[in-house]
Structures are given as structure tokens and as C-alpha cells.
Design a protein around this nucleic acid. Structure first.
Length: 425
RNA sequence: GGAGGAAUACCCAAGUCUGGCUGAAGGGAACGGUCUUGAAAACCGUCAGGUCGGGAAACCGGCGCGGGGGUUCGAAUCCCUCUUCCUCCGCCA
């Protein structure tokens, strides 16, 4: 959520910066008007409440001393109704402001690359060059089928389209990657491991920004009349881990590495990436999450990017890092890097990780703050999240980049001890 | 699933029956001090925090006893409702 105070101070500036997202935010002017009206009424009703409190106190004193308080009670008689009416009008205005701001995306960071679409994203760096094959490389869906390590048909039978069964060494590869990534981040990069609930409540999804606007992307459950959602990313439970808390400055940055299975409806992606396991309703992911003071936020962001890249470096996979332009930025995020891994079947780089700083946008929604000193006023933290990495797409990258002429797959060196084999055949 | 009980400030806890000098006794912890070569002990002192609004500021006011609603001039206290936790029984990986 963006800061209402920032809006009050300079709506036009906020609107201008938000417009770089290529949408219309002129409606925010109305929010400022309503806010002003609301605050005026607030002053009015608070004065009335103060006088009611004063009179009630006097009534108490009168009665205690055995005096007649009828006159005072007459004085206070009409106040209640007026107060109630004013309170109701404040509540309406407040609710309007709140709902509107809940649906307003984050302001891109100060020096954001202004652009219209992903076309305008900017490449930051590249690592390794795409492999050159002496034979026509085979896409992962064919490799996986031939090796009998991913069962597409039975996935559809059991659950439906965009579900698969990992089998044999395919299942082991998935498991090895999870273990490997968690190990690197926890033991070498110093993140604290987390395995949170995969089912999250409405408050959690609202705090991170999926609700109310993006409900269509989520798998929704209804248990005894209450709504729950399957988490679309570990970011949701991990950020909410500290919801409604005041953190100690000395504990920052707090850095976690979480494992979850992520569930996505992919509602708007019909017909896209239909072959293989690039876009499934269910996939495993190792996620990095950090809570930092605002002055450290962007330092941690770069560090998190490096930590995610490290996995691809260890796996010896070619990738590039791009910075998203304002038109391609996720709603809750102020700045995002994507890491794209080389996929021979696409003959292109494909997103495998996304590392973002939400600044105080999620912290304000989730009410996560920190104190500089024990006696100082709590301030909102920066929240950061980054894939470290999406496991399904890592499987794809390994199958396709490590394939041999005979259809077998070499196992990356760092995975061999986890896989107990150096080749999948 | 059945039957009971509980939620008060950093922690413990009184107050709730009988509404008003209670935004909250007492204890612990913490912090500051006296004493001490230093520390402990003892003693003295401080100790809701938060949030929203007004104000240049000093400061003033609203809210606030798990959440929401109601009764009342006035609610920690009465009523409704939700949530969470605990105990016992049943079931269970």
C-alpha cells in the first residue's frame, strides 16, 4: 500500500510516477479529496467526544456525591446521535480510501527504467554462452518422455491439464535440486530455513498484494464458510511470518529461505507454454525472503540477486540478468530483476527467477515495522523476495542444456552427490 | 466431533458478580541511581506501548483491557458475535 501521507503532500507527483506503469491513476485525486473531508469530520467528532467524556465524568462525580445530575444528562443527551452519524460518515470515507489504495500498485523506485512492456526491459549482464550442440537439441518434453522421468498423461488423468508426475530419476532430480538450493542458501549464504503452510488465509494474501486484485490467479478453498488459498509463491507465507510485528533493528536484515510447492491458476495464460513443464498449476520453488531497514533495502536486493545467480553458476547453466521496466513491473514491487536461463527448445532465455524489492508497500499492508532504538518510533521495513530458484524450470534447463546425442542427460557436478549418479539415461 | 475453561500492558496477575475519583492494583523483568575495588544483594526512582487527528512547536484531543457489534450520559466490567489458546473424552498420520 502506498503512503496516504505521500498522496496528501503531492498527489500529482505520485500520479506521475505511477503513470509510468502505463495505466491511469488520476482517480487518486479523489482519494485526496475524500481524505480531506474525512479528516475534517474527524476533528469535529473528536471534539464532540471530548465534551461527552467530560460531561460523563461530571455526572459520575455528581452521583457519587449524591447530587442531582439530570441537568448534565440533558446537556449530553443529543450528542450520541450526532457522534454516531459523523462516525458512520468517517467510516465510509475511510473504507473508500482503504479499498482504493489496496488496489493501487506500488510506486516504481526512484531511478526505474521507464518502459511500456517487456520489450523495454534492460539486460544487466550475461553469464556463460549458450551451448553449441553437434546434433539437433531435443526439447525437454521429448527428453523427459523418452527417459520416462516425467509423466504428462497420467498427470492429466490424476489432476488435469498442467499437472505432471515426476518419476524415477525425474523425481530424484526435483528432490536433489530442492535439497541443493536449500543447502547453498542456508549454509553458505546464511539464510534461515522455513517450511511454511501452503494454505494461506485472506489476510495473508492481502498483505502481500495478491488480493483483492488478483484473486483469479489463485486456487481458492472454502472450508466451513471461510476462504483459504493455495499459496502462489512462498513469498506469501514467508512475508506474513512477521505480519503485525515490530522487529528489532539489531535483528535486521532478517533473511529466510523457504521451500513450498506453489499453486497458480494461470488464468490468463491459456494456450501459452502448453508443452512441457514450463507453466504448470503446481511447481516447487525455493524462495529467498528478506526484511531490511529502508537504508539497507537495495543493498540486500543486490545481494539476493547474487545469491540466486550463484545457484545457476554452480549448476553451470547459461543465464542473463535483466531489469524490468516500469511497464512490466509486478503490482507490489518497486524494483525487479529477472534471471533468465538459456533454453535450447525456446532458442531464447526464459525466466527462472524474479528478485524484487517491494520497499514499504507490503510492510504497510502487513504492518511489519522495526525500531531503530528501543524507544524510537516504529518504521516500516523493506520486504524483499526472490526465487532461488524455481525448481521446475531448473529441471527444464538441466535437461535441455545437459542433453547428449544419445538422449541421456549429464548430471551437473554439484548435483551428483545428491543424485547418486552422474547421468540420467 | 463432544464437554468445559480462559484471553487485562514485556511476563505473571488483581479488578468483572455490584458500570462512574481504574488507561488499569500488586509482583517480576528491564532501565537509571545509591552503596561496593568490581559484581551480587539491599534500597530509591522510571516504566503502557501504540495508533489516528489538530498544531510551526510546546502541547492538546480521539481510540485503546483478544477482534467486531450493541446497551448506556458513561463499559475492562452488562448483552450479542467472531477468533485464538488451554483441559478432558473420542478419532487420527
Amino acid at each position: 500500500m502506498i503512503d496516504i501521507r505521500l498522496l496528501r503532500e503531492n498527489v500529482e507527483h505520485v500520479i506521475e510516477r505511477l503513470q509510468t506503469r502505463q495505466k491511469d491513476f488520476s482517480y487518486l485525486r479523489q482519494v485526496v479529496d475524500v481524505d480531506e473531508r474525512m479528516r475534517k469530520t474527524l476533528v469535529e467528532v473528536e471534539e464532540l467526544k471530548a465534551s461527552r467524556n467530560e460531561l460523563s465524568k461530571q455526572i459520575g462525580e455528581f452521583k457519587r456525591e449524591g447530587n442531582d445530575a439530570t441537568k448534565l444528562m440533558e446537556q449530553v443527551a443529543g450528542l450520541g446521535e450526532t457522534i454516531q452519524a459523523l462516525d458512520a460518515s468517517i467510516e465510509t470515507d475511510r473504507e473508500f480510501i482503504h479499498q482504493t489504495l489496496l488496489e493501487t500498485p506500488n510506486i516504481p523506485y526512484q531511478d526505474a527504467i521507464v518502459g511500456v512492456s517487456e520489450e523495454d526491459n534492460v539486460e544487466v549482464r550475461k553469464h556463460l554462452t549458450p551451448p553449441v550442440f553437434s546434433f539437433p537439441p531435443v526439447p525437454h518434453w521429448d527428453l523427459a518422455e523418452q527417459l520416462d522421468i516425467i509423466d504428462f498423461e497420467r498427470g492429466v488423468k490424476i489432476a488435469g491439464p498442467r499437472f505432471v508426475v515426476y518419476k524415477g530419476l525425474g523425481a530424484r532430480l526435483e528432490r536433489a535440486l530442492m535439497q541443493f538450493m536449500m543447502d547453498v542458501h542456508a549454509m553458505e549464504h546464511g539464510y534461515i530455513e522455513l517450511i511454511p503452510p501452503y494454505i494461506n488465509n485472506k489476510e495473508s494474501l492481502t498483505a502481500t498484494g495478491q488480493l483483492p486484485k488478483f484473486e483469479d490467479d489463485l486456487f481458492k478453498l472454502n472450508m466451513e464458510g471461510k476462504d483459504y488459498y493455495l499459496n502462489p509463491t512462498c513469498e506469501v507465507p514467508a512475508i506474513n511470518y512477521h505480519r503485525d510485528e515490530v522487529l528489532k533493528k539489531a535483528d535486521l536484515p532478517l533473511r529466510y529461505v523457504g521451500f513450498t510447492t506453489a499453486f497458480r491458476k494461470e488464468a490468463g495464460a491459456a494456450g501459452r507454454d502448453t508443452r512441457g513443464i514450463i507453466r504448470l498449476h503446481q511447481f516447487s520453488k525455493v524462495e529467498l525472503i528478506a526484511f531490511a531497514s529502508p537504508e539497507d533495502g537495495y543493498v540486500i536486493h543486490e545481494q539476493m540477486l547474487n545469491d540466486a545467480e550463484k545457484i545457476l553458476q554452480l549448476l553451470e547453466l547459461p543465464y542473463r540478468v535483466i531489469e524490468l521496466c516500469t511497464g512490466d513491473l509486478g503490482a507490489a514491487m518497486a524494483k525487479t530483476y529477472d534471471i533468465e536461463v538459456w533454453l535450447p527448445s525456446y532458442d531464447a532465455y526464459k525466466e527462472i527467477a524474479s528478485i524484487s524489492n517491494a520497499e514499504t508497500y507490503q510492510a504497510r499492508r502487513a504492518n511489519i515495522r522495526y525500531k531503530e532504538q528501543p524507544e524510537s518510533k516504529p518504521e516500516f521495513v523493506h520486504t524483499l523476495n526472490g526465487s532461488g530458484l524455481a525448481i521446475g524450470r531448473t529441471v527444464v534447463a538441466i535437461l535441455e542444456n545437459y542433453q547428449q546425442a544419445d538422449g541421456s542427460i549429464l548430471v551437473p557436478k554439484v548435483l551428483q552427490s545428491y543424485m547418486k549418479t552422474d547421468v540420467i539415461k
